[in-house]
């Protein structure tokens, strides 16, 4: 077993390792979603954000256009303030666009869904989305349902 053989196999080994890593990074992880450049930020206030997390997707019509950049709580107004970062190429959202917290699938993760409005002016960096719909909390729905059932009787 001479040096040439050893050096070749070690080279192959290292290359295999890097190839495996890149395959995983590109095809199996969400690395691509990190590539997006700095988008513009808008705020939205909710009563309840449910299971929304930082880096949760922001989507329109099911298409991902940005992510949740930050989540904070306003102690004075008792509301949750969510900062959305939208990719720069999607800059034509009317100022009366509404934002709701929806669930992907039945038990999936939560995301912010935007419904474009009808105004002529567009949202710019730092603007606030005023029309919001909080997350649906399962317990409240069940409570409502039971309550309404009891009412009927």
């Amino acid at each position: 077993m001479n040096t040439k053989f050893i050096e070749t196999t070690v080279g192959v080994f290292v290359v295999l390792g890097f190839a495996a890593f890149f395959m995983l990074a590109m095809n199996v992880s969400n690395l691509i979603t990190y590539e997006s450049s700095e988008g513009y930020q808008v705020h939205a206030r909710f009563d309840n954000i449910g299971g929304l997390k930082v880096r949760s997707p922001v989507a329109v019509g099911g298409v991902r256009i940005g992510k949740v950049a930050a989540i904070a709580y306003d102690n004075e107004a008792y509301e949750a303030v969510v900062t959305l970062e939208i990719e720069p190429k999607y800059n034509k959202f009317p100022t009366d666009t509404s934002a709701g917290i929806l669930t992907a699938g039945l038990l999936g993760e939560q995301y912010v869904g935007l419904e474009p409005g009808a105004e002529e002016e567009y949202l710019k960096s730092g603007d606030e989305i005023t029309v919001t719909q909080s997350a649906i909390v399962l317990e409240e729905i069940i409570g409502q349902f039971l309550y309404s059932q009891a009412d009927e009787k």
Partner: peptide, 11 residues
């Protein structure tokens, strides 16, 4: 696999 796996936290 792509969407649910986070590059930093997981890989």
């Amino acid at each position: 696999a792509q969407t649910k796996v986070d590059f930093y936290t997981d890989l």
